[in-house]
């Protein structure tokens, strides 16, 4: 008799906990993600962050692209990192352009591999742009970090 009561009590409490206190991994989108990404920088110096968040794209439409213009200087080696929020389905693809010319990208279409960063020793100062999108147009949250190698 008493055993049953205790059991019921425990179950009630457990249910309450389950439903009111989220114990699932929290979404890392935002500053958290930037911090995590920053930790991967290693010996490089942080210049700028580019957070990106896209929702799921309707079937049939082309995936959404976010563009940022940057200026890179001759004589500097830059690293462009890409970090994903793992709680979301989408994986980010970062591409570096000079004008319309693609210079590099973190995603190899043939092998389907995602690379953590692009390293670019610059000899030509000028306008470049970073483009962000998520593979398959899925919902995603990511951050790109521009840093310089010492």
């Amino acid at each position: 008799m008493i055993m049953t009561k205790q059991l019921i009590f425990i179950m009630a409490v457990a249910t309450l906990i389950v439903f009111c206190i989220p114990f699932e991994a929290k979404s890392q989108c935002g500053d958290e993600l930037t911090n995590i990404c920053h930790a991967k920088l290693g010996n490089t110096r942080f210049i700028r962050s580019f957070p990106v968040q896209h929702g799921e794209v309707d079937r049939g439409s082309s995936p959404r692209v976010t563009r940022y213009e940057i200026i890179l200087n001759r004589g500097t080696t830059y690293r462009i990192f890409a970090c994903n929020d793992k709680t979301k389905p989408g994986r980010v693809i970062v591409s570096l352009y000079r004008g319309d010319q693609l210079i590099a990208t973190t995603y190899d279409v043939e092998t389907g591999r995602h690379f953590p960063y692009i390293e670019y020793p610059v000899n030509m100062s000028g306008r470049y742009s970073l483009q962000f999108m998520f593979k398959g147009g899925k919902e995603g949250c990511a951050v790109g970090i521009l840093s310089t190698v010492n």
Partner: peptide, 16 residues
């Protein structure tokens, strides 16, 4: 664009 040690490295001879 080259892959070296699991990262992408760009070799660019453009100059300014």
């Amino acid at each position: 664009m080259k892959e070296i040690d699991g990262k992408i490295v760009v070799i660019d001879n453009s100059r300014s």
